[in-house]
Design a binder for these strands. Structure first.
Lengths: 229, 229
DNA sequence: CTGTGTGAAAGGTTTCACAGCT
DNA sequence: AGCTGTGAAACCTTTCACACAG
């Protein structure tokens, strides 16, 4: 009864790699961070066991994932830190410019842009929009804050495909539709509403209230973990 | 080679319900939101098909989940909106007070507390901590901002078990250890670092950079979704 | 007849065990 | 020997199909 909203695998047939499960895609950034730390430490080669220790995943899982990307390891040795990083970035499409639109320059939007500014990485926030006239024209984390009416022109002009929705719940659906109309097809939504959009648009929701509610389940109403009184 | 960091099921044997898969736990808040909307609309009974339309999940999945909680539906009729909501809240432990500590009153922390303030719901942010002396003593979303040195006493005094870490990466590990020492065993971590904590502590990480990196995978470098020029 | 609850089947992911390079 | 890559097994989740209650 449901159209199976992007479940399982993706990228049917492409140049480099074909169809990686969503769960594996979510782990790639984890590897990337671990590799970054190792590179800073000057390490050139890393084993799956070492990556496991750094990421909290199992070595088998890591080998499976990396083998899926095309097998960039050397048997009996391990993975070349630098090279593996490049391969993963390439697989994620982070070797090109990936501009992102941020809609909503409130506290959350500000936190996101500050955070993004500090990292020398893709994706990078390339355009910011807010409905508050007092904010329009100001700069935030290196990007200019524009009015909501400029979404369409700006997103098109910059060829933006990804957007972050950081506006209050009431405005989110309208914002999302504008972004999609302008060419965005991958959205990260922080507003606590279910967005109703064409099936080809990928929406990832991050809802703090839900996150907390789910976590409450794991708080058992008995003795705390470490008490010493 | 790994101790299986809380995988699969939980809550071994308890009073009300026993062992719900993590994936199901994550869906409960989704049901809760849909039920809230329906309740506002004055609806008393809802079918799994209707809930499916509101949540984007399948009706079978919803029935499976709700049957696991104890089967609160009436065959041939559906689920009582009010009653089902109570059952889910009870299962999540939201029928009691669930105070949460928030560490870090920067932009992110402010966004979180504002957001939490507006909702008449559990969990509720019951204590806020920040290292900035200028902020200590001020109020934010109904709670007082305290100094970091007050974490232990306050968390213990209020019996807080859950905490949100919204501090920069460098301080996160220290903050996490303090929280755990004070009795917290469920953490929501927004800092972009892997926290090294005892296995019995449940950590849920939300990392914007990783989220964006993973989403970049789904931005295929070809024609956008909706173009009309 | 309607819509839930549930065993069975299907599908996907993780773990295991080991073959195969270096 | 050491560590990757990979088929097979185990495990978990979702979907299907239908019995069953109201």
């Amino acid at each position: 009864m449901r159209a199976k909203l992007h479940g399982g695998r993706h990228r049917p047939a492409d140049g480099s790699s074909r169809a990686l499960p969503d769960v594996a895609v979510k782990r790639l950034p984890v590897y990337l961070r671990a590799l970054g730390e190792l590179a800073v430490g000057g390490q050139e080669i890393v084993s799956s066991a070492e990556l496991a220790a750094h990421t909290g995943l199992t070595s088998e899982q890591i080998r499976k994932d990396l083998a899926m990307l095309g097998g960039f390891g050397t048997r009996g040795v391990g993975y070349h830190v630098e090279r593996l990083g490049s391969s993963i970035r390439s697989c994620l499409g982070l070797d090109r410019e990936v501009p992102v639109a941020l809609v909503g320059a409130g506290h959350l939007g500000t936190a996101l842009s500050r955070y993004n500014e500090s990292r020398r990485q893709q994706p990078r926030i390339g355009a910011i929009f807010d409905s508050d006239p007092a904010k329009v024209g100001q700069r935030l984390g290196g990007a200019l804050i524009r009015g909501m009416d400029e979404i369409d022109a700006t997103v098109r002009a910059l060829g933006i495909r990804m957007a972050i929705i950081a506006v209050p719940a009431v405005g989110a659906q309208v914002v999302a539709m504008r972004l999609v109309a302008a060419g965005c097809d991958v959205l990260l939504n922080f507003a606590p509403v279910r967005l109703d959009l064409p099936a080809e648009v990928r929406v990832h929701n991050v809802d703090l209230a839900m996150e907390l509610e789910a976590l409450a389940y794991y708080v058992r109403p008995d003795a705390p973990g470490a008490e010493g009184e």
